[in-house]
Design a protein around this nucleic acid. Structure first.
Lengths: 137, 137
DNA sequence: CGGCATCCCTGGGGATACTG
DNA sequence: CAGTATCCCCAGGGATGCCG
């Protein structure tokens, strides 16, 4: 299971890599990984200490074994998660955030808080929008 | 083109909606929207003032017209983006962030900054990981 | 110019079964 | 328990064409 993706890193384009062009492909790939549906949930789960594989599986509702493994590998590859194997029988594998991962967790947490506290406003906006839609039948 | 998605909002589960269970489906749906690949790039682009449809199209490299329209609708529906139509011929449509959208933009910006400044470390981690992979041939 | 509808295809990701 | 491998399906999303 090779996790690696062809990283055709072009011209870096330092600070102005705001929105345009393909120059910021690397940044995009980082963003894609870190803002991925499962990545966020995993990082959030690992926010409060290490967890075993099966613990994560139970903690993150709806994730398949495949995606858990795959996403953990990617996070490990990017240096966000540390994987520790204890070769007992049956084997025990623990996952925890690295320092880098913890810094990402902070952002993730901020996002979660934002979603939580703005939820009413967003739902209200949705209702308004949908109501106007239905009106134009 | 109905943008709405069936929002089967179950028991809310207020503050402890960290990682587990289906209780935080709404939060997840908000996160899914706001951390979506195109949403992030659009919000980033709108960070510095209003833009026309075609401007966004050009600014965000690789986005298809379909996805631009669709994502903008979703952002509008969630009250993150304001759409203004000027009925001239040809028509002119401007998009801008709402106050809520601006608060999201802040987070997006933080994420971008994080990716930018941790890029070297992440790429290093990737190389290390890949090297170890190749070693185990 | 903006944007909706249709067709169509790829790959993300679920379900299942097997190993160390 | 913690994976890996295989199969397989469907929705995300690109390409194209047509309207106000």
């Amino acid at each position: 299971m090779d996790v690696r993706v062809s990283e055709t890193a072009p011209s870096p384009s330092p600070s102005t890599c705001a929105q345009n062009s393909d120059a910021c492909a690397v940044i995009r790939s980082i963003l894609a990984r870190t803002t991925d549906k499962w990545s966020i949930l995993i990082v959030k789960s690992l926010g409060r200490g290490p967890h075993r594989f099966s613990e994560l599986r139970r903690a993150i509702d709806g994730i398949s074994q495949r995606m858990l493994t795959l996403t953990l590998r990617n996070l490990e590859r990017d240096g966000l998660v540390l994987r520790t194997v204890t070769p007992t029988t049956p084997p025990r594998v623990d996952y925890e955030l690295t320092t880098l991962g913890e810094s990402l967790w902070t952002l993730t947490e901020a996002f979660g808080q934002w979603a939580l506290s703005n939820r009413p406003e967003i739902e209200a906006a949705r209702s308004r929008f949908d109501a106007r839609l239905d009106a134009n039948t």
